[in-house]
Amino acid sequence: MKHLKWLSAILDNPKSKYGLILIALLVLFACIGPFLVVDPTQSLARPHQAPNLSHFFGTTGQGQDVLAQTIVGAGPTLFIGFTVGILVTLIGALVGVLAGYLGGLIDELLTALINVFLVIPGLPLAIILAAYLPTGMLSMILILTFTGWAWTARVIRAQTLSLRDKDFIKSAQVIGEPLWRILIIELLPHMASLLLSTFIGTTIYAIGAQVGLEFLGLGDMGSVTWGTNLYWAANDQALLTRAWWTYVPTGLSIALVGFALALINFGLDEVTNPRLTVDRIWRHRLQAMGYTFSRASVYIGQKQVHDFSQPSSPQALESAEKGGNDEA
């Protein structure tokens, strides 16, 4: 199954492999973690304690346990992030494929809609939506989906346009395949890696935007999420009181999730576009053969050609070095 090669390849690629492992661990942690810690909403101890043995991450301005808040906050944050990712990918794929494949007036209307949503800044729009909608997880998911679908739709539409003119799609039309089969069975599987990467991108966006909204105080302030953790930290004057432990663990966790997701996308990029890595491999091989040269000698990845049939030839090495200096 050649077309699924990229799936096994992203498991081979070190970047996406470690990204996947990291995200799997974090999700696992978010699932079982809440059963292992104290109640994060309860005021248990003296406020603003620095990390100590009874509270590994210290306590908040309200005397809550920071470790518990960080772990319990992971669940809703990740859940909203992934749900928005899935919803946006579904909507974006639907709109993008329909616009790209059907063309004509439908395409023009949908494209105009996509472009309008792309240029209206998402966060301010999300802010006024959040201000008017009742607070809660559902509102948050709806708001983020509403403000985030356009990018995916645009990317999928572009890809559909390039696939639409492929002969295998025309062949399917010619033998009389119905529309839904052409879209779902012939077209969509070719976008699997693209859908995955836009899903990951959207998830990163959704987590960031959600945390941002909650940090502003828009959202369910009674629940424990990474966003509300930061909101309360700021509210309790964590900066003035120098209680760095109240916001550092949550921020690091957010970054860890974002980084893990970005790693998966890096790997996916490298797998689907081998050009991005071919130079690295090439350099490693040349170095392994005993060529030491400044990076610059291989400018635009090629042009300095080495006669390594005679690796000891001082002439060849010299020319390599000289070429390098020209570039430096």
Partner: peptide, 25 residues
């Protein structure tokens, strides 16, 4: 231009990590 160099291999992951933090954090 210098792809494959140490700069090329270290800068993207570094900034991906920095970019993963919320701006305000």
């Amino acid at each position: 231009w210098r792809r494959g160099s140490w700069l090329d291999q270290s800068l993207p992951p570094l900034f991906a990590f920095l970019g993963a933090f919320p701006y305000f954090w």
